[in-house]
């Protein structure tokens, strides 16, 4: 098996580039906590409304610098008791699940892009820098009203 000299140069370049990409995302993810949405907690999809924290959906202040937001996604909306309002510059931990089919909880122009899977709890920590009104939408097909499934979060 013979590799042309230039092919060797090209493959070394390619492999080095890919390794750098992996290194950058890996270090950023695991040592700076920039991991994508996820989580290993499960939940009974039929008992979502009785299970904490989804029995009291909405915003809860945990301590001076941390807020928790619990959201139940369902066809075709998000259960939130009042308007969602969170402060800028504080860590917001989103907890999302679904009480029916698969949805997403996606906040426009942020890194918050979470799948909501029945039986699982998805978590994502995010700190808003800019105050404003952000569009929340579902980007996983969930039925006839999928494109009507949205909400808004206000950052103050």
């Amino acid at each position: 098996m013979h590799f042309h000299k230039y092919e060797k140069i090209w493959l070394v370049f390619g492999i080095v580039a890919l390794t750098i990409f992996l290194g950058v995302v890996g270090v950023s993810a695991f040592s700076h906590d920039h991991t994508p949405a996820g989580g290993m907690h499960t939940i009974d999809p039929k008992k979502v409304n009785e299970t904490a924290p989804f029995d009291k959906p909405g915003v809860t202040q945990l301590d001076d610098d941390t807020y928790q937001v619990a959201i139940v996604a369902m066809a075709f909306g998000y259960t939130t008791p009042e308007k969602l309002r969170v402060p800028a510059g504080k860590e917001i931990v989103f907890h999302v699940t679904s009480s029916d089919v698969v949805h997403s909880f996606t906040i426009d122009n942020t890194k918050v892009n979470m799948m909501a899977v029945p039986g699982q709890i998805t978590m994502k920590s995010y700190t808003f820098t800019e105050p404003g009104k952000y569009l929340i939408l579902c980007n996983e097909y969930c039925g006839t009203g999928h494109h009507m499934m949205f909400n808004e979060i206000e950052v103050y």
């Binding site: 992996l22 695991f30 979470m114 799948m115 978590m123």
Partner: peptide
């Protein structure tokens, strides 16, 4: 499945 729950970051990254 990178943005979904039920798979730990370790296994997601391994498959990445």
């Amino acid at each position: 499945q990178l943005t979904e729950p039920g798979i730990s970051n370790f296994w997601k990254f391994l498959q990445v």
